[in-house]
């Protein structure tokens, strides 16, 4: 066995040179490229993480906006509901007011119709009473349609206030005395005498025929009137009937 030292030395140098060559042309460029790729991957991962974080922030922002929109929507719905409720109450109030007004108008119409019906009934009753009274009085003597009411007209004249009584016939004007028929001279004289006696001074009378009186007498002056006739009684009765019940 023999060791060739030249070969040993050359092979050592060869391997060292090969180590340098491969280090320079193979391992270093490849390791640098692997490192560059790792750096690029790290950078891309960082960018991806940043993008993911940004996307997450955008998602949270969108969620916040959605929540805000939902809150705004809820507020708008609540406001709309309140407005609708207010409008409903207003409409109900207006409808109720309109109903009350229509009801009041209807009640007024009903009352007016009732009043009109009562007035018509009163008129018919008055006419019926007049007819009845006229038929009854037509069976009495003609004197009774005047003489029977003379005391009443004197009493009504006495009930007038003194200043009013003082104006009756004060300027010499005759007192208008209404009667259902033409008075006879005796009846005119009697009436003048009783009225003179009631007023306490001489007066003159002017008889006026008023068939509507049916029976009785009435004094009709510009400042005073004394009614004592069947017509006046019927009018008072009709007015009493027309008065609404308390």
């Amino acid at each position: 066995m023999r060791i060739d030292w030249w070969t040993l030395g050359l092979q050592t140098v060869n391997v060292l040179v090969l180590i340098w060559i491969l280090s320079r042309f193979l391992f270093r460029p490849l390791a640098a490229m692997i490192e560059a790729r790792r750096a690029a991957a790290t950078k891309q991962l960082d960018e991806a993480n940043a993008a993911r974080a940004a996307a997450e922030a955008e998602r949270q922002k969108a969620q916040q906006e959605a929540a805000d929109i939902a809150a705004t929507r809820a507020d708008a719905l609540k406001r709309a509901a309140e407005d609708a409720e207010a409008a409903k109450r207003s409409s109900l109030a207006a409808a109720r007011e309109e109903t009350d007004r229509l009801r009041a108008a209807a009640a007024a119409d009903i009352a007016r119709d009732r009043q009109q019906a009562a007035a018509d009934a009163s008129n018919r009753a008055s006419r019926l009473a007049l007819d009845i009274a006229a038929r009854l009085l037509s069976r009495l003597p003609e004197e009774a349609r005047v003489a029977g009411f003379l005391d009443g007209i004197v009493t009504g004249l006495a009930d007038l206030p003194a200043p009013v009584r003082a104006t009756l016939g004060a300027d010499g004007a005759p007192i208008r005395l209404k009667a259902p028929r033409a008075l006879t001279p005796e009846e005119i004289a009697t009436c003048r005498a009783r009225l003179t006696e009631a007023l306490g001074r001489p007066i003159d009378i002017a008889p006026v025929v008023e068939p509507d009186l049916i029976a009785g007498l009435e004094i009709d002056m510009p400042h005073a009137a004394v009614r004592n006739s069947l017509r006046a009684d019927l009018d008072r009765i009709a007015a009493g009937l027309m008065e609404p019940a308390p």
Partner: peptide, 23 residues
């Protein structure tokens, strides 16, 4: 004075091949 043996020649060939391939 340096004897070049076959292992050295083969190693040189391997070095050349590896250098070319690496480059």
């Amino acid at each position: 004075p340096v004897p070049i043996t076959e292992p050295v020649l083969v190693t040189w060939a391997i070095m050349v091949v590896l250098s070319l391939v690496a480059h």
